[in-house]
Each structure stands twice: as C-alpha cells, then as structure tokens.
C-alpha cells in the first residue's frame, strides 16, 4: 500500500496505481477535473503513465458554482 494525501486527506491506496486509475477509482471524469501532483499540474496525456508513489500529495479539482 502507498500512503498518500489526496485533497488534504491522508489515505492508503494500492501501490503503483496510475493517475488514470485513481480518477476511475473515484468515479471522476478526466475531462471534468484537473490534477496537481506534489505541486505540479499534470497534463492529461500523462495520466495513464504517471504512477503514484508513497508520500505523494495529490489535488483533484473541478468547477463548482461561483460568482
């Protein structure tokens, strides 16, 4: 298992999970989110290749209502 921080929450996830797999795990749609890995914004084309490591900090954001 890998210990990560996802949207401020400490979680344990399966080792070597890709970003793409993480997106699917949380039933999110790739075109409706943006992802930051350890402070760096990930381009969508790397989601399939990028593997999540121990102690990674991930932020997944989306659009919500706002003025």
């Amino acid at each position: 298992m890998a210990k990560i921080q996802l949207n401020g929450k400490k979680l344990k996830i399966q080792r070597n999970l890709t970003i793409n797999e993480l997106v699917k795990k949380y039933k999110l749609k790739e075109d409706k989110v943006a992802i930051e890995l350890n402070g760096t914004i990930l381009p969508k084309h790397v989601y399939k290749k990028k593997k999540i490591k121990n102690n990674d900090k991930i932020e997944i954001v989306q659009f919500i209502g706002g003025g």
């Binding site: 996802l6 949207n7 401020g8 929450k9 949380y26 039933k27 999110l28 749609k29 409706k32 989110v33 943006a34 932020e59 997944i60 954001v61 989306q62 659009f63 919500i64 209502g65 706002g66 003025g67």
Partner: peptide
C-alpha cells in the same frame, strides 16, 4: 462564472456542475 474547488472524494455521487 465558475469557481475551482477540490473534488469531494468522499462522495462519489455528488452532482457535478458540468
């Protein structure tokens, strides 16, 4: 206008603005 916020990862069924 729309705001950018964290996805609520604890609620997989939460509606999405889009």
């Amino acid at each position: 206008t729309v705001a950018v916020r964290r996805v609520n990862i604890l609620d997989k069924k939460k509606p999405v603005l889009m």
